[in-house]
Nucleic acid binder design. Sequence first.
DNA 1: TTAGTTGCAAAGGCTTTGCACGCGC
DNA 2: GCGCGTGCAAAGCCTTTGCAACTAA
Lengths: 136, 136
Amino acid sequence: MSDLLERLRARGWRMTSQRRVVAEVLDGDHVHLTADEVHARAVARLPEISRATVYNALGELVSLGEVIEVSTDGRAKRYDPNAHRPHQHLVCSRCGTIRDVHPAGDPLTDLPAEQRFGFTVSAVEVTYRGLCPGCA
Amino acid sequence: MSDLLERLRARGWRMTSQRRVVAEVLDGDHVHLTADEVHARAVARLPEISRATVYNALGELVSLGEVIEVSTDGRAKRYDPNAHRPHQHLVCSRCGTIRDVHPAGDPLTDLPAEQRFGFTVSAVEVTYRGLCPGCA
DNA sequence: TTAGTTGCAAAGGCTTTGCACGCGC
DNA sequence: GCGCGTGCAAAGCCTTTGCAACTAA
């Protein structure tokens, strides 16, 4: 499970107790926490960790490509550690729950050349919206 | 061109000079302005219009379903008046330019039932990312 | 040792809110 | 005239920044 920590160590990411806790909090499936939620969980293990440090660590994990930043609503960004298997998000419009999904096919190829306006397209984000079983 | 204003009037939206200006500023194709940009353009025509009024009007247009709110980056939300033809966005990762695109096929059907986690899926947002001709 | 990391507190960008005044219907 | 819309200024949420003290390698 703790792939994230492994990978970070392997990549020579300078490790501190704060960074380790942030990485541990993020590890897992269907994890999509806001910076504040990460901070809250980190504080439970390391009471003196500051918000700024959490933001620093998250920003680095994103630049390293080990965590994906998602803005599913207009509110706080969420951080998704599932960066190594391409996937999309299924979001409940009511309670905000997010699930990772892996539809068949490559959405990248769905945009024909004549619709690309000369762009070089390199990535696609897909968000499915609806109501989860609990909210429906 | 001024479909938006027409529709709003037809729907009995209480009209004021401020609301008219906001609707006029938003009207057109490939329009994806931030609230602040809308305000700036509105001020050019109606110097005393306030930011709060612009936010109010935008919020209502979104609830009415006449304008779509898009958060392409983690920054300010953008407002897209092209709410009546389903479409997706092509975003330049460098300069932020947005183009509306209309790929073939219905992305809604791409998510098989066994991947829906019991959700009732009602909408899909697709964002293609890349570099525009100018930035490439 | 030494460059990189942390915590604090303050500032910053974007958005919402409360309330008195003003205007569309 | 009534009720909703407007403007102002203040507050709010989320995030970034500056800087001195600290610590992993």
